[in-house]
């Protein structure tokens, strides 16, 4: 059962290894093998975005990524992103971008990634970038402002 080849990849800047089946979801590997519980499972079907992480710098849904496809690649989770950009997280609390918090880790990863790609994203561009991140609580206004208030 445990003859899976070792998968080596980078998580939040550190080299990590995992012996799981390559069909395992990246989300489960992060949460259960590495204890990185910031990424949440909302739906497990790609619809909600709560499990968003960066794979080689691009936002992806970790519930839909088989860990076998991460070998040799770079994964960043909300834990690392919150450290890199504490102001973004701070602004999310100030603008009312967080209520129950279930969507927040995924939203922070997507917003961070959008700002890397496009530092002055318009409201429309933010809206498009967040199309795959569901928030049932805030109505999104605070989330949009959390990014816009950080524009230069």
């Amino acid at each position: 059962m445990t003859d899976h080849p070792t998968l080596a990849f980078e998580v939040n800047g550190e080299a990590r290894e995992c012996n799981a089946s390559p069909e395992m979801r990246l989300l489960d590997c992060l949460r259960y093998d590495f204890g990185l519980t910031g990424s949440k499972e909302g739906c497990g079907e790609g619809e909600c975005g709560a499990c968003t992480v960066l794979l080689d710098g691009q936002p992806v849904l970790s519930c839909l990524v088989p860990v076998g496809q991460c070998a040799g690649r770079r994964v960043e989770t909300v834990e690392a992103i919150a450290e890199k950009d504490p102001e973004l997280v701070e602004r999310m609390t100030e603008t009312g971008g967080i209520q129950c918090g279930a969507c927040t880790p995924g939203i922070v990863v997507t917003l961070y990634s959008l700002r890397q790609a496009n530092p002055e994203a318009s409201r429309e561009e933010i809206r498009r970038a967040l199309a795959g991140n569901l928030c049932r609580c805030t109505g999104y206004e605070g989330i949009f402002r959390a990014l816009e208030d950080g524009h230069g």
Partner: peptide, 26 residues
Amino acid sequence: PILGGTDLMVASPHERARQGRWLDLS
């Protein structure tokens, strides 16, 4: 075969176990 997995991975772990194994073409 699997490429991005955005169709294949939308299945419960139970269903995925039944689907057999995947070969990465990506």
